[in-house]
Design a protein around this nucleic acid. Structure first.
Lengths: 339, 339
DNA sequence: TTCGATCATGAAAGCGCTTTCAAGCAGAGG
DNA sequence: CCTCTGCTTGAAAGCGCTTTCATGATCGAA
């Protein structure tokens, strides 16, 4: 039994291949009776279209690509899940790659996606290797940047939120409740504009209040629970330890929380801690984590809509700024009275 | 500026299209000097192969498909992350779909993947609609089943673990430390052989010890934190509440843990709780969750290897049984003395 | 009834690549 | 010096589908 082609269906239905193709793709260009017969025949024969041939002839694949830093962080998985689901509703399929925060690997992966003929690409953040923008431009493929609202080249839509404003608000809150010694465990900044913006937000919040931010209150660490754990110990071993620590993401915060428990430091009574992402488990940690809610699913959904629209040249792709509210929970409180 | 084809490269390099193709795909069939020149020319021109044309002519796409129940559960995201990374190392690309635990949607999504010409498919579990197996057979596409070791049609390799043995061991342990009233919050069983096997494991463990398992000690709930929360309250409001509760996955367990805290029930002193999956956060919950470790990343990696091998007809795809060890942590302890 | 306009359909030309197949060519052996 | 072998290369035939383009068929209006 060999493969069933559009020709076999055409013969069996007593029409031409062109009519079969039209029945399947442009249903209203063919008489209803004929169409029904063709579709029934195709079904009976178990016809499965050959996507490669279709893509070659029609110059579009119905596939969309996405490159995320990592799928191991549930925040990206959530975004991808929403993206995939929405693409599915549009009859599109999702090709996925992960860069491991490595710009070179990202460029290489993008090449792979482009060679597979994706009709659009979702990227995280606006900070990418020059090769990435070149490839995208010369392949003339629609692209959308997520997770940020700034920094993308002109003409590239952004669907994201304001990272800097988010941490600025976090700092304002901490200052309001009395903190003055605020430290930060930031994520790695190279190639990561989100991490950089989050640091800038803290600096800005402090500057507005006229508060000095000593160098040693800011460190850059990989996004891991282990790093959060180790770094909290470093901070709390200082002669003048901070009274609040802002973590670059929830993983770091969970690590810090665990380390505090291990050191016998009570959170939030003795130390305030914040995260960033609002993972499912942030609300279920003990104590529940104060963090910034990242609208991952919304970004995925809207990115899908944006790319599908761009692929059919329908809508002028517009940028969208989403809310990233601070979720006040149980890891923040006024600092202990000065002894 | 129009698209650069293999022909343009051929002209620029002063060779035929066939030689360009060979330089790129079968490097040792062409003289080194020529090959180097061709590759340099391709690079200079910014040549990007057209995957559709390549797939059409060579009858393979270099893409592998995967269908998981959901990407919102990090356990599947971890598996997909590993799968993707390994495929990337093989120069393959990953097409992903999620069924939302709906067999009909799974069949539809599979069709989409097959139409895109995937060279292999990874499935979770062995329980699928008949249409799924039909499609796979008639498309002659290699497939691998993960997350279980049993129940797949003959000839279909499984890369998974023994769900039933895992919960059986969990029960043995609970019995050993003195529990007799053991309840279970299972996942939805329709179309989910893993959930079913986990229930069977509990039943088997209890039966071996000659202990009765009353109907009301077993309920089926969606895999969510909220369901875990609500169900724990139900269980603990019974006249004779269980002393240990086995949850079908970690989400349910986290919910149960939170509800116990809310009710003022001390875990593990008054109640033992177990999960299944061993998510990253299981070890960081308070108290740290006793659970079954699911080798998600290993399954993803090995599934990738298996499918790549099958696509090149290299190795006879073999089934693999991986370990799923019980991770004893802080949510299990002997039951309180009988009052 | 007749004419032009509209609609449904078929024929055929590719889409850009891989892959036989055959030819060219250089070196080895007689 | 000639033939045979083995290695490179080019020519060309598709891969299965979409999509003009052209041709009948159909319909409403005159």
């Amino acid at each position: 039994m060999k493969k069933i082609t559009i020709h076999d269906v055409a013969c069996a239905a007593g029409v031409s291949a062109a009519t079969v193709s039209r029945s399947l793709n442009l249903p209203d260009q063919v008489k209803p009776a004929v169409r029904a017969h063709v579709i029934a025949t195709a079904e009976r024969l178990g016809y499965l279209a050959d996507g490669a041939a279709r893509a070659l002839a029609s110059r579009r694949s119905g596939a969309v690509g996405a490159i995320v830093p990592t799928l191991d962080n549930p925040i990206f998985a959530t975004c991808i899940a929403a993206l995939q689901q929405r693409l599915d509703e549009h009859g599109r399929v999702l090709l996925i790659a992960s860069s491991g925060y490595d710009p070179a690997r990202e460029a290489r992966d993008l090449r792979g996606l482009l060679e597979r003929g994706v009709d659009g690409v979702m990227l995280v953040g606006a900070d990418h290797a020059a090769a990435v923008w070149h490839l995208l431009a010369s392949a003339r493929v629609p692209v959308v940047v997520t997770w940020t609202t700034t920094g993308a080249p002109p003409g590239v839509p952004c669907i994201g939120f304001d990272n800097q404003a988010a941490t600025r608000r976090l700092v304002s809150y901490l200052l309001d409740i009395g903190h003055r010694r605020i430290a930060m465990i930031a994520g790695p900044s190279p190639g990561n504009d989100r991490a950089t913006a989050r640091v800038a937000g803290v600096r800005e919040g402090l500057a507005r209040a006229g508060i000095d931010w000593p160098e040693e209150y800011r460190v850059e660490r990989p996004y891991s629970v282990a790093a959060g754990r180790a770094t909290l110990i470093e901070f709390m071993s200082m002669p003048r330890p901070p009274t609040a620590i802002i973590c670059g993401n929830d993983h770091l915060a969970f690590g810090a929380l665990a380390a505090a428990a291990g050191m016998g430091i009570r959170v939030p009574a003795e130390l305030s801690l914040t995260g960033f992402d609002d993972l499912d488990f942030a609300a279920h940690a003990t104590p529940a984590l104060t963090t910034v809610h990242v609208p991952a699913a919304a970004m995925g959904r809207q990115a899908a809509d944006c790319l599908v629209a761009a692929a059919s040249a329908r809508a002028g792709p517009a940028s969208v700024e989403l809310e990233a509210p601070v979720m006040l929970r149980d890891t923040t409180a006024p600092p202990p009275p000065i002894r």
